[in-house]
Amino acid sequence: MRRSGVRTVVGALVAFGVVALGWEVFARSGSLPPAITPPVEAIAAALARMIGDGTLFVHVGYTLGRIAAGLGLAALAGVPLGMLMGRFRPVERFVLPLVSVLSPIPSLAWVPLFILWFGLGNTASVALVFYAALFPLILNTWTGVCSVNRLWIRAAESMGARSGAIFRHVVLPGALPFVIAGLRQAFARGWIAVVGGEMIAATRWGLGWVIFDSKEFLNTDVMLGSLAVIGLLGLGVERLVFAALERRTVERWGLVRRTSA
């Protein structure tokens, strides 16, 4: 386990090293103007500058805050709705067609409308994350409730559990693997939405806004540096938050196998 973990990390480092080296060769080859293909040192220097003056942390803070708010609201709405769909047929018949039609629309396609409705700023970005995150949460929760083992429900009934207790003690934990999978998907979609949304809808702060703003002055080093931060941050949240959540719940219960790190 540990050895394979070390190997995975080494493999990743080698892969990134090769890509960085390739980029370096390409950047210095002069096939494109150096101003738009900054070498790795320039990207690192831009990042160091942003860390030094603290702006990077503010951008990261805004972006994380927006996704947390959007994801949180989506979970508050989507998980209960998915539960109701799983339990009550009429709710399912009402909600499912709406979800089926709305879910395939890319969240970014809503940006212009959201700006008209909510103006530039936080609200539009949060609304965008909410939209992107809502449907994976609804659909996964609904699937989770539908696939709760009937035997657990029978066993609980035979031990005197009434419907409220069955819901709390059987359906909720039984559906949890799906809810967590839904959260993961929702985060992945929300992360794309927040960065994309910030490019157009944000003012002054946010990782997406930095990238778009840097276009004005051809600050490609800042753009590439921010892209790297976006990638690393997405991976970090996935690994730290969701993997930890899984380890504590569904993995401990043997409901899913450990995903290789």
Binding site: L151, W152, A155, S158, P173, G254, L255
Partner: peptide, 13 residues
């Protein structure tokens, strides 16, 4: 009290 054939009757959590 009821005991079923399927091992899955226990609550995994």
């Amino acid at each position: 009290g009821v005991v079923f054939q399927d091992f899955a009757q226990l609550f995994p959590w």
